[in-house]
Design a protein around this nucleic acid. Structure first.
Lengths: 308, 308
DNA sequence: AAAATAGTGTCTTTTAGACAATATGCG
DNA sequence: CGCATATTGTCTAAAAGACACTATTTT
């Protein structure tokens, strides 16, 4: 920028294009054995009334991660319940936001035992939507959020196999079955994403809202398709339909048990036992998550033997 | 931001803090069997005279990745020789740049057969510095680039084990030995980074340059320690010292051969044979990289059996 | 007792790793 | 030939996976 030897050319920020910087969040959870993500319904243009990832602008003296936590709390009333956040990637196509040049830094996290999310200060709706719904094309997200979500799904699919992250879906104390069920739910709902571009991004063009803030058809469609609206503890039904063509087969209980117990530092026994569920069964031992960062060896989904 | 029901509040970019957005690049290569990264020497404040990752500001209508490629070419004259670039992460601490609020998006890539890098338009120096040098604390980078580099090293260490990326260090046609040698070099030089914070970041405070543009001591130190300056094909000596305490043991030739050949789609035979090196030996078959994206099963470094 | 879930044992097949043996070039 | 490197073979130990069996609860 400066010629060699020029010693004192002060940097002038005005020489460089100003960007808006935002954060967006992909918060996973498991409800009714289906993997879900937290979505809000936008109440301002552009994409008014569309589903979107929670997020917003980074403030002047704020860390990126701080901004992510703040926006999450503001828009969904979810605080520490979402565990540690991890960066997913940054999306900065010049046309991704019609209002101004914006790059967004996406974070993802895992939450257990969420409070029923409230609309935030802006009275938006926030819900835990099954990823299967988004995958099936029933729901299209604002901006390039479909792309972000796809990347997040791939990331979690991959990462739970070699890290202890699956424990984050469980309560502080959990049984091995609960952990196995988390693996099954995640792999069941994400295995389709590992290779394909199953989610078509919504065009990133400016789109004028059509109707009222909350489009009732969208809202209704989603509820019918997936989430029971106001039941505190929804019935143990799996409402989300399995993705067509998903040939995931559940993990073997016995082998899983042996696998996780032999990974040193993965699970920590508490000595306590769980009370069996209503349907009976032998009480299971309760564990807490250990302190390792990586699973050696990793845990893999069963690979369906193809051709040959 | 807007009250519920307010339909027409136009977005005003001035309401949000303006950021500078930059890209930084971590370009890996292997020279003399040592893993290296491309560094430049800064010729403007802050951190004038310090080593830094190549990078710079994103322009108004530019993709992030486009910006990365442009900056790489401008500062180091390296173009397509660096293969595909992949995002590493984004760094946006409020104090990371003393000039203005800046977030930087880091990319990384792998290059083979680099041209001897020239100083760019700004007459900076650019060199392929052994990561061992940076790891040992001999070289401290500008801004938070030590942190970025550490993250990149961890990423590549991990990622070559389950992707075919190691082939990118090789020529278009390569022997299995050359590929194995790439794995050995990478793991040899990165295995220390997998768990620890071995690189201390330089404080992110503004630091006034001490002397001339290119501090000769730094330059000299680096050359002595690692890179032969102007030899086109440096002697087959390993000049970079192995990191102390690195207990990496090389891969078994026979087992490696079998492993890579059984991974379907990893290597594609050309039928041709290489001519043996000056030291003799049976000519090896030449392969090209196949088209898979993931290695199943992955290739692992030998895990040193600890305690027990 | 029957059903349901947790946990253990056992057997078979596959894979990983150490290392020996052979192949093919060079001087 | 003797050396160096490539490639294949062999044997052993460990891991993965299928699946049967036992244990402990509820109805």
């Amino acid at each position: 920028m400066y010629a060699l030897g020029v010693t004192d050319s002060p940097h002038n920020p005005a020489d460089y294009p100003p960007f808006g910087v935002t954060v967006d969040l992909v918060i996973f959870s498991i409800i009714n054995k289906s993997l879900r993500i937290l979505l809000i319904q936008r109440d301002e243009p552009p994409f008014l009334g569309k589903w979107a990832l929670p997020g917003g602008f980074v403030l002047k003296d704020e860390n990126l991660e701080q901004a992510a936590r703040r926006e999450l709390a503001e828009e969904t009333s979810i605080g520490k319940e979402a565990g540690p956040l991890e960066q997913l990637g940054t999306y900065g196509h010049p046309d991704r936001d019609p209002r101004q040049r914006v790059v967004t830094v996406a974070y993802w996290g895992i939450a257990h035992d969420l409070p029923e999310p409230q609309g935030g200060s802006d009275a938006r709706y926030a819900e835990h939507v099954p990823v299967a719904e988004v995958a099936s094309g029933n729901i299209r997200l604002a901006f390039d959020h479909n792309k972000i979500l796809t990347d997040a799904i791939r990331r979690i699919h991959h990462k739970i196999s070699y890290t202890p992250l699956a424990t984050r879906f469980c309560a502080k104390e959990f049984t091995i079955s609960e952990l196995r069920s988390a693996y099954d739910a995640i792999w069941q709902d994400t295995i389709e994403f590992t290779n394909l571009e199953n989610i078509k991004p919504i065009p990133a063009t400016f789109e004028q809202p059509k109707l009222s803030l909350v489009t009732p058809d969208l809202k209704m469609k989603y509820q019918i398709a997936s989430a029971p609206p106001k039941v505190a503890n929804p019935p143990a039904l799996t409402l989300a339909k399995p993705i067509k063509g998903s040939d995931y087969t559940k993990l073997d209980t016995g082998n899983f048990q042996r696998s996780v117990l032999q990974i040193e530092g993965f699970l920590q026994s508490t000595g306590k036992k769980s009370s069996p569920s209503a349907s009976g069964g032998r009480p299971a031992e309760l564990y807490t998550a250990g302190d390792i960062k990586e699973l050696t060896p990793p845990i893999h989904p069963k690979t369906p033997k193809p051709k040959k």
